[in-house]
């Protein structure tokens, strides 16, 4: 059963439809990238997936015991947060509040979970620091740890790299990929960074301003007309090959680990596809 199934999904503001007739599925273990131009309704779709906005048409179905409030959400940063006096620990712990039942205070389990996630994101040494004194990249890690506290299954990231420099962006993407591959957490990422979308994701949803342009695996997307018109045809393939060689290599190195049973089938499929593609190209090159 799919984690999320969207059928004929549309959203409207004041009667004006901004998201048109989306059809896609998210399977456990997937890494779905949602791309599209400004104004294609990406952020609206995010609100819809979190059930903060109800669809004007169509339906979103959650499966595998997922509910909308169990999605670990990494929002775009707001101005308020940037000068908020709060320690890293306080911020991360606040992700635990949605976890079933009402407790006025944090339980021991909550604290352990927060510790574990801070460790996974390598921010344990920052835990008593003030959130507002951290760099942009560190702040994103803190919010990512908070999102992990709120979920067991699915992370939803809304433009996580906006405002970060290229080096920090890259390490953030790698971190998200690690969460996806090692912790077996499904990832949905909204991005306008096409190169990253293709390098790390297993699936792509391309939203146009008036219809859904593409949904499928990243492999197929690279060959699709939607991708080529978006990237300016021929150059795209070259750029992709260029920018993502290191990533593909890393995926190769990690391949044995990917066979671990807790890994989603989707990851394996994607990785096999990558491997095959690599061999094909190598053959073509020689």
């Amino acid at each position: 059963m799919s984690l999320i199934t969207c059928k004929g999904l549309s959203f409207a503001y004041d009667g004006v439809t901004v998201v048109h007739n989306l059809n896609f599925k998210v399977e456990p273990g997937d890494y779905l990238c949602i791309v599209g131009e400004n104004g294609a309704g990406k952020s609206t779709l995010v609100k819809g997936l979190l059930q903060l906005k109800s669809p004007s048409q169509g339906s979103i179905t959650y499966g595998e015991g997922l509910t909308a409030s169990q999605i670990g959400y990494l929002p775009q940063q707001t101005q308020v947060q940037r000068d908020f006096p709060a320690s890293v620990r306080e911020v991360v712990l606040s992700g635990c509040l949605g976890n079933g039942g009402f407790h006025p205070f944090y339980t021991k389990k909550d604290r352990e979970k927060a510790e574990k996630n801070m460790e996974a994101l390598e921010i344990t040494d920052l835990k008593d620091r003030c959130y507002r004194d951290l760099s942009g990249g560190q702040q994103q890690r803190v919010l990512l740890a908070r999102a992990l506290c709120a979920t067991q299954k699915l992370l939803l990231l809304d433009e996580p790299a906006s405002g970060l420099d290229p080096v920090v962006t890259k390490s953030l993407y790698e971190l998200v990929e690690r969460i996806n591959a090692r912790m077996g957490i499904t990832v949905i990422m909204v991005s306008h960074d096409m190169a990253a979308a293709l390098a790390y994701s297993s699936h792509v949803l391309h939203m146009g301003s008036d219809r859904q342009l593409f949904f499928g695996t990243s492999e197929n997307y690279r060959r699709s007309s939607a991708y080529h018109s978006f990237m300016g045809s021929k150059n795209a393939a070259r750029i992709w090959r260029h920018e993502n060689a290191p990533v593909r290599r890393r995926r190769e190195e990690r391949a044995p680990e990917a066979a671990a049973p807790e890994q989603g089938a989707a990851i394996r499929t994607a990785q096999e596809a990558y491997r095959k593609e690599q061999t094909d190209r190598d053959a073509a090159d020689t």
């Binding site: 979190l50 903060l52 909308a68 409030s69 169990q70 999605i71 670990g72 959400y73 929002p75 707001t78 308020v80 947060q81 908020f84 709060a86 306080e90 911020v91 712990l93 606040s94 992700g95 509040l97 949605g98 006025p104 205070f105 944090y106 908070r146 999102a147 709120a150």
Partner: peptide, 16 residues
Amino acid sequence: HRIFAVTFDETFARAT
């Protein structure tokens, strides 16, 4: 703790 969460990040609090 809830007041903290709502103050710090209302969207996240509502989403979770």
